[in-house]
């Protein structure tokens, strides 16, 4: 039996808008993935702990509050401390183009902005997991 792709979708910080991330959750479920949703107002520590315990293939962090340049460095630092190096981290939401460039340098594999259709998100995540190979 093939394993469904496991995804943790997380909302970090004081960002109260999760309509978008719930649309993504639904699209991923309908594409046959196991989706764990963190709920609102999580800390980077909580999100990283959850990603490790759930052993997800992908951690998707949704941000509409503009704190990406604070949150992602923290997440990568925590992953590094825990010795996790095969987790695929993606970002979603609304953020400026210059941040997208910086986030990718930091190790964020894809940044899926507000105008990306659900189908493309599914294809992107599937491709990233295929590229990673067995674990």
């Amino acid at each position: 039996m093939t394993q469904p792709i496991r995804v943790l979708l997380a909302k970090v910080g004081l960002d109260g808008h999760d309509r978008g991330v719930r649309v993504v959750a639904r699209a991923l479920r309908d594409a046959g993935m196991d989706v764990i949703y963190s709920g609102l107002h999580r800390t980077p520590e909580e999100v990283v702990d959850a990603a490790v315990q759930e052993d997800v293939d992908i951690l998707g962090v949704s941000l509409l509050s503009g704190v990406q340049m604070t949150v992602f460095p923290k997440i990568f630092k925590l992953l590094d401390q825990k010795g996790v190096d095969d987790l695929i981290v993606v970002a979603g939401g609304v953020m400026p183009d210059e941040d997208v460039v910086e986030l990718k340098k930091m190790g964020v594999r894809e940044v899926l902005l507000q105008d990306v259709p659900p189908k493309t998100i599914v294809e992107t995540l599937t491709r990233l997991v295929d590229e990673r190979g067995a674990r």
């Binding site: 479920r29 196991d34 999580r42 800390t43």
Partner: peptide
């Protein structure tokens, strides 16, 4: 539960357990 149609799921129990995080 997994979806009987797509095989996918939304695993939503964790969200009730945020007090235990970390």
């Amino acid at each position: 539960p997994s979806s009987p149609y797509s095989g996918g799921s939304i695993l939503g129990d964790r969200i009730r357990m945020t007090e235990l995080a970390s």
